[in-house]
């Protein structure tokens, strides 16, 4: 029965639920694309702090892609004579598909709001990456044997828990990445968008309500697509089906079928005995 019970664990504690800390304790990062100069210090600081393999100095013409050794990078877009940049990494959703489909319990909701990750528990199934609305998680290892391990930004969990900022935020020299309480950052972000609106009518704050609220917020000058962000990211319906429908169906169907078949044997046995077919 434990087996059946565990088929679907719908009781993952959401960061915004009453089981957890209140909204005022939620941490977040605010990324202001207008202040980003593309220095890649966030990228380097992430690699340095997390001991990730270093690569050649990145350039906007050939920006590094997210990989098991690259948890944060810059999305570069031509802008007049130069470039604009948007920091790209895990968005730390409040309603995170990766957490919901992770059967190993490697991904979980931190009480501080971000999506925590314990690589020791990861079995490398890759369901997280296939369900992430932003396509962030990456697998290393051998896909034929399935001996793999997922990697993604973990919000510098140890640093944040110890009261420090994430390495990328600390490294940012222009204030394009700020770390703090989510509520405060939303207020700041809205204020900044208000300042930009005159010159850039499409300016917006991204992440306030997307997927029940992201823990990486963006001040954008233009619509999200321009920065490689989905306008309206969705929790995949297949994840909901796997989580809330398939498990319960199995838990009902199997005992019902087994009981029906057992009943059939009993009835058949008694009736056959009555007319002397079994003894």
């Amino acid at each position: 029965m434990v087996l059946l019970y565990n088929l679907v664990s719908t009781d993952k504690v959401r960061a915004d639920s009453t089981h957890s800390t209140s909204d005022t304790d939620q941490k977040a990062m605010l990324v202001d694309v207008t202040k980003c100069i593309g220095c890649w210090w966030c990228y380097a600081a992430c690699k340095n702090y997390n001991n990730l393999k270093e690569t050649a100095r990145p350039s906007p013409e050939d920006p590094p892609e997210l990989s098991p050794d690259c948890w944060t990078t810059l999305f570069a877009l031509p802008n007049g004579d130069g470039w604009s940049f948007r920091k790209q990494a895990c968005m730390h959703c409040t309603e995170a598909a990766c957490v919901e489909v992770c059967t190993a319990g490697a991904l979980s909701y931190s009480p501080l709001g971000f999506v925590a990750y314990d690589p020791d528990k990861c079995i490398g199934c890759g369901y997280c990456g296939e369900h992430c609305p932003f396509g962030i998680p990456r697998l290393n290892g051998n896909s034929v044997t399935g001996l793999q391990k997922m990697q993604k930004c973990n919000f510098c969990e140890e640093r944040v828990s110890a009261g420090l900022q994430p390495a990328c935020a600390e490294a940012c020299p222009t204030g394009a990445i700020t770390f703090g309480n989510r509520d405060t950052l939303i207020t700041e972000g809205k204020k900044r968008v208000g300042e930009l609106k005159g010159e850039y009518p499409k300016a917006m704050l991204y992440g306030e309500n997307e997927l029940e609220g992201l823990h990486v917020l963006y001040v954008l000058q233009d619509s999200p697509e321009v920065y490689g962000l989905p306008e309206n990211p969705q929790f995949p319906i297949a994840a909901t089906i796997n989580k809330d429908i398939i498990g319960p169906i199995a838990r009902i169907a199997w005992p019902v079928v087994a009981a029906g078949l057992a009943l059939n044997v009993v009835v058949a046995w008694f009736r056959q005995r009555r007319h002397g077919e079994v003894h």
Binding site: V2, L3, N6, L7, V8, D120, K121, C125, G146, L147
Partner: peptide
């Protein structure tokens, strides 16, 4: 295949082994 649904069994090592066995 079913072991993947049981987090306390699918630790790192066993989880990988079961996935190889499934293959």
């Amino acid at each position: 295949g079913m072991l993947i649904f049981i987090p306390w069994i699918t630790s790192d090592t066993i989880g990988s082994v079961t996935r190889i066995l499934h293959r």
